[in-house]
Amino acid sequence: MRNAWLIARRELAAYTRSMSGYVILAVTLMVDALLFNTYALEGVRKSGEVLGRFFYVCSGTTMVASIFIAARLLAEERQAGTLPLLYSSPVRDVEIVVGKWLSGFLVVGALTLLSFYMPMLVLLDGRISLGHVAAGYLGLLLLGAASLALGTLGSAFAKNQTLAGILSGCMLVGLLVAWILAPVTERPLSDVFTALALHGVHFTPFQAGVIHLRDVAYYVLVTWVALFAATRVVEARRWR
């Protein structure tokens, strides 16, 4: 995986030199802060409740930011004509995909950690459980990893970044609405929708400070499946 790290490092350096990386970071943190102030801190609430609302808000911005970050990963290489460099180098397709995803994940990780001052603000006027904070952030990172993997898959399919964003958004929304479809369908279909729900079922426990192994396994599985599919798409592109 040395090559994956090389690709990730180059991609990260590209983020630091482009405006888009800073814009995504700034806008996401600003929206997080605004919603934290207007929604999470609204009214008189217990500290745990504020934290739960904070992680709820952050989960939404993390998913949106992940799609924006991932859209460029492979589609931009295709647009810029740089894919032949990777394809003609002794680099495995899985290393290309993992390297790209990893760069995005590090940006999402930085974005998530930069919001850490908000839970700390709760300490000014209340008490928080560090376990709750850790669980919430673990959930955000797992959700970000899965959303980015879906975005990487969309980026592998699409010819340009716009299309990549739309495709990834559709996949993400598909997994989000599974939660809405679950109650209005009958078993076994409702069980399938429940198991697939990206946010409503699997993120809620993290939001409340609870870590279930099944939720961790779900996000890891979604990430793995999406990256596996993206690798297959990259391989298939060698036929065209």
């Binding site: 482009s18 740089t82 180098s89």
Partner: peptide, 23 residues
């Protein structure tokens, strides 16, 4: 390739070092 596969934001030496490591 017919279009040189270049990362526009990189410096020439930095780009060549990246390619060398990749290869």
């Amino acid at each position: 390739p017919d279009t040189p596969p270049l990362y526009e934001e990189m410096e020439v030496g930095e780009y060549l070092a990246f390619v060398a490591a990749l290869r």
